[in-house]
Design a protein around this nucleic acid. Sequence first.
RNA 1: GGGCGGUUAGCUCAGCUGGAAGAGCGCCUGCCUUACAAGCAGGAGGUCGCCGGUUCGAGCCCGGCACUGCCCACCA
Length: 870
Amino acid sequence: MPRDRLKALEERTRYVAAEVEARVFARWEEAGIFHSEPDGSAAENYSIAIPPPNVTGALHMGHALNGAIQDVLVRLRRMQGRRTKWIFGTDHAGIATQVKVEEMLREEGTDRHSIGREEFVRRAWQWRERYGRTIVEQYKRLGASADYRDERFTMDDAYARAVTHVFVRLFERDLVYRDNYMVNWDPGTRSAISDLEVEQRSVEDRLYMIDYPLESGSGTLTVATVRPETMLADTAIAVNPDDERYTRLVGEYARLPLVGRRLKIVADSRVDPEFGTGALKITPGHDPNDFEIGRDHGLEELTAIGEDGRMTAVAGERFAGLDVDEARAAVVEALHAEGLVSGASPYAHSVPHSQRSGRRIEPLISLQWFCAMERLAPPAIECVREGRLRFHPERPWTQVYLDWLGEIRPWCISRQLWWGHRLPVWYCDACEETYVAEAAPERCGACDGTVRREEDVLDTWFSSALWPFATLGWPQPTPELRAFYPTDVLSTARDIIFLWVARMVMMGIEFTGEPPFTDVPIHSVIQAPDGRRMSKSLGTGIDPLELIDAHGADALRFGLLAMSSSQDVRFSEEKVRQGQDLANKLWNASRLILLRVEDVEPQPLPETLEDRWILSRLERATARATELIEGYDFAHAALELYGVFWGEVCDWYLELVKPRLYAESGDRSRLSATLLHVLERMLQLLHPIMPFVTEEIWTFLPGERGLLAATPWPGRAGALLDEEAEQAIGAAIGAVTALRRYRDEAGVAAGTQLSGVLAAEGYERTVEHVARLARFELAGGGGGDDRDGGEAIASVVIPGGVVHVLPSGGLDAEALERRRTARGGALRKEIERAEAKLANEGFVQKAPAEVVQAEREKLDRLREELRSLG
RNA sequence: GGGCGGUUAGCUCAGCUGGAAGAGCGCCUGCCUUACAAGCAGGAGGUCGCCGGUUCGAGCCCGGCACUGCCCACCA
């Protein structure tokens, strides 16, 4: 190793991520290992399509966790020798982007209507050019080994062709249609939105009782409503057919107050007789429930509220032009004036709101494009039922997915926006003709009139649904498609299982014949430390980039992986800190090894029991880590590796080996080879989780070696498993710990050597280790039970026997006595419990023999220890 | 209104098919031992939400309750 690098290693007692990460990332990119040329089959290759972040976005904690997860998977498979592709790109994110561009225009003192559609779209692209890099650079900061060379955008030309292709085919298959239907109208974005973009919020309203005069003149029929203003569009009154109070009125008519319209009284079982008065005013134009009742009874559909959220001419002169809230007040006032309000009470209920704009949804009948789902859903259900597509963890997500698909409803796919995929639909101005095609017709085929294109764009999720295959060049039969589709894994949080995952599965099967991926790990949602949602608007968000700056990307990755699980978790910076500490520990242990070993090839050349022990432990750790990652259990994988490295390699192996490592004389080449092998193995195992620090240390290992990221993942080496060594070193560790505890309890100063007699089996080859690490001079008792330490002042129980402690200076008699009393009490209690258990005939007869046997041995041990206490 | 999950050490969370309660952080004690003081060694701390049940034995299985979170839903 060059002198200056060695020097750097010597002087740096702390790992400084900020000085390393950019440099390491550049090496990966230069080497081009994130990109794989298409070859072979999708079955032998490994691919993951990233959930494309919004171009407008910045990396948030969800991206960071999901990015870490996908990167662990991709890095593992890459090391395992698979041809790997992590499909990367961004989403045009219709509404989100349009909102940002509109904000920009507002700051410029203009708006989209002034500049026109064409200019607006141009500005949006410009905006994307300028700000779209941010999120990409942030993924690189995280260390994500995605294929940046093949970056995609959901509005690239090729991608747009795929979207158009799908729309046209779906239309041809009668799965896409245009209809006048009730939609969730968002007055904020002035667009229809899908059911999935609506959220319920509880709202305090007033429930009004309004009297509708009966036409017969024989009194009134009172209805209950929280939206009096919609009465202006009432076209009927409904009662439950079984409601005897109203049976006689069914088929009769009432008069709509303020308007005078004649309202038929109909019977419908959807009316709850328990609620309000049991009579329901029917407004087919402004209520989803009424809409259905209206269609079933052939009622007129009137629109009194326009898309601008204001009352239309249908509402009548008095109310036209008012916004909904004003209209409500005006209607109530007018009704009061006529004495038709017979009650009003506060009423809390949940009301649909737009997730996008936060505005209250206005249910409206509108001419929109829909995608029929009844034929697309069954294959998506089937592939999960058959196990060709699996969720991890299986419960509850499999059922959640199946339930939703089982009751799927039409998807409103048109949006009244400018930024997005404009529908490939043209209308003839002159006649009624509609054209749905991949290319614009020149003129109307029927009347030769001019055609104009549909103004609406598609729901962003429509294009996202094609992501796993449209990114690979579909519908062209590209080499990429052949090599990487279907993909293997789709990793996400639960919030977009319906919005995105299910739709990808349906579209994937419909257009490629196969589910787009086979495994769907669903990860935690990271909450704010106080348990609230992490969100920018609440001010509860924590910026992952700041954490990377403070602790390093490896630390953030480790922390997020370690804290995540199958359920939601509160963010804990301590876990990130733990990751940082691990990176530092890794750095320092590497210094210890690298600055002392000889320049030899790393390989397992065990000379001693502790060598055999650590090699065996590492084999187990390798198998375990592989299994955990492959099983999508990242938290346990991270913590397991932390424990092995810190708790076994550092705390014990390196301490056990120090005398040999520091020895002035002797051949250290075998030890060096083994130590380097241990280090090498740990770097390999930790690399998917902590790629930067491991890659950096890798460069200090001897020999000409390539990138760690491209180094083979260790396979199984059963020959290194060594029960005997694990047993012997395990006992030694137990003995050292017991003796140290004794020292502490007896108040012995840290530097003082104690002496004792070892009377225990199994320490033939470890007695010197035990003596040194426990700071005990141990005379060989030769094992067995000879108690020649006649004047022993105490006995410390260790695995396989005891150590008789001989009197010496530095012992605190009082502390010793306290220890004896406390330990004796505890022992007697435990003995009592064990005795009671063994005296229980039920236990002895019914429990498995081995459990009973273990209990007996435990009791013997406890009694022995109590006896040795004296 | 349905459905699902959570309730374990001061905090954040693990606990596999039921067999003597774990980790990290925090806390206490002692150590600058020539890799790391963001370190090392040792320790304290838990009626596993509550009430019943099954079992020789329950954090784990069953029933009920309480609190809490999430998802779905057209009751005005």
